[in-house]
Design a protein around this nucleic acid. Structure first.
Lengths: 294, 294
DNA sequence: TTGACCATATAGACACCCTCTATACCATGT
DNA sequence: ACATGGTATAGAGGGTGTCTATATGGTCAA
């Protein structure tokens, strides 16, 4: 099989009808192109051009070859244009899997700015629990997963995102909880509102109480962080939420942070990807964006 | 623009899913292919493969590139197959222009054997006078012209074919002309049958008589060599034809050659082509065939 | 867990081929 | 006749692509 590079030279020569012009386009000298065409003709065993005093002209066989190579050349050009788009993020696609509430409260701001910067990069958001996210990542259905750390998996590459702090919050009704230190036992006497059973936060808090020989019996279990916030605001009880996600409410005074006499360790948000699978340009850029704003 | 040869390496690697396998196909070593792909990735500014322990796998961008390169590769493969056909004469086309009667009597036997040998080469036959043939040759409408020599034209390459001898023939009725030497003056007393006015033979004979101070007044002028032969056979008079084209009739005794007491110089058949336009494989093969049987 | 096996990556040396310069050659048009 | 613009050829040199040798890493089976 002939060296493909020779076909490029052939194409440009045929197209411009001149070896000299082709040489200029290729940033080569005329003898070089002349030589390449000679090699090609020798390897194909046929004359491709008739040489005239004003350039070259395709022979019958040359014309046949040209009609094919023209197509091939166009496809390669299109390929390079397409890759150029991908490289400059004028095109592309990212599939992100967001665990729990992280989608809305953590990811959304990034998505907005990223979308403004790269409007032609399509973003698909998938919702799911941490194990679901990991599974989809391994199946190649998503490029990036956003989960709470820690996570242990040999196949995963984990980048650390921002650190978040889970806290108990309450509305003005139980404002006293924010004044003085509150023990877990004391807190237990208030109505506790938690995220759905089996969620990261539900499990964590249950274990925290259990470690202090207390059995937590949540008053309400909700499937949405927004509802947790709303319920706390209007005085249904004490919600367990992430401080960073209720920053606005805390600032405006519609929620108060419980002054808990117990240590709730801060959590990190992790950006997980498959260790062996290189990220696409778009995904890579998005991850960079997430890491930059750590 | 990237070296096209790298795309070939890329394609075969992607297709086989393995650098080692691609190396075998390319008759290269594994490090060489590995290196080529690295170069390609660097030049495109993106990772094309994820390397695993059992080979390589296309990344998102790699897949995009592959979908284009696959097409390009197929076109090039098709091109090489097509050229292979042309080279082996399993395909192709020849346009031949035959002057005067040469088509039927000279060319036809060659065409038959050539067609048997290369049934997939299409042959187009064009009929015309010598100037018409030359014109069509220069316009690129035919590849090869078959004419009587001599012909003088800077742009033409002339190959000599067989030598032919024009003679006068007659049927049994005037058989006596074949017995003893016949002068032009004597011949003139018989009815002369010539090919159409302005034809090569008409002009030649008129001049021959003129050079001997005789004015030729042909009895009949015909537009076909076949008719010349037939008219002579059935006793209409004396036809001026080419000896080689009436070999059968002379042998079987339906025609007799006039024993002329004047020298008619033999003529050569010429195979003419454009000097600066290389012949197609098929045309070239046909010309070779003509030259071989000189 | 360990070792064999099968991938790819890396390093460094060498040779070949590609490209360059210089020049010849040819056709065309002034 | 000569300038111009095209291609072909020769020969030299350097760059690049390919090789060998070896490292590295993952998978599988014992």
């Amino acid at each position: 099989m002939v060296n493909f590079e020779l076909y490029k030279v052939f194409y440009l020569t045929a197209k411009s009808g001149s070896i000299s012009k082709a040489a200029k386009e290729l940033y080569l000298t005329q003898p070089s192109v002349s030589h390449s065409i000679k090699i090609l003709e020798e390897q194909l065993g046929m004359i491709l051009f008739s040489r005239t005093s004003k350039g070259v002209e395709l022979t019958k066989e040359g014309s046949v070859l040209y009609s094919y190579i023209e197509q091939a050349y166009n496809f390669i050009s299109m390929a390079e244009e397409k890759l150029q788009e991908l490289r400059t993020l004028s095109s592309g696609e990212i599939k992100i899997g967001g665990s729990d509430s992280l989608c809305k409260h953590y990811l959304l701001p990034f998505l907005e700015t990223f979308h403004v910067q790269h409007p032609h990069v399509q973003i698909h958001l998938v919702h799911g629990t941490t194990p679901e996210i990991v599974k989809q990542l391994k199946e190649g259905k998503i490029d990036i997963g956003i989960v709470r750390l820690p996570i242990e998996d040999e196949q995963l590459q984990v980048r650390e995102g921002i650190t978040i702090q889970d806290i108990f919050v309450t509305g003005p009704k139980y404002r006293e909880l924010s004044m003085n230190k509150v023990t877990l036992a004391k807190l237990k006497t208030y109505p506790i509102i938690l995220f759905s059973r089996n969620s990261f936060s539900h499990n964590f808090i249950t274990r925290l109480f259990h470690d202090n020989d207390l059995l937590l019996e949540p008053e309400i279990e909700l499937g949405s962080v927004d509802l947790l916030i709303e319920f706390a605001k209007i005085g249904f009880g004490v919600s367990f939420v992430t401080r960073e996600f209720v920053a606005k409410e805390l600032a405006e005074g519609s929620l108060y942070e419980v002054n808990l006499d117990a240590h709730i360790p801060p959590t990190k948000i992790g950006i997980i990807t498959l260790k062996n699978m290189p990220l696409s340009m778009a995904a890579s850029a998005f991850v960079d964006e997430l890491e930059r704003n750590r």
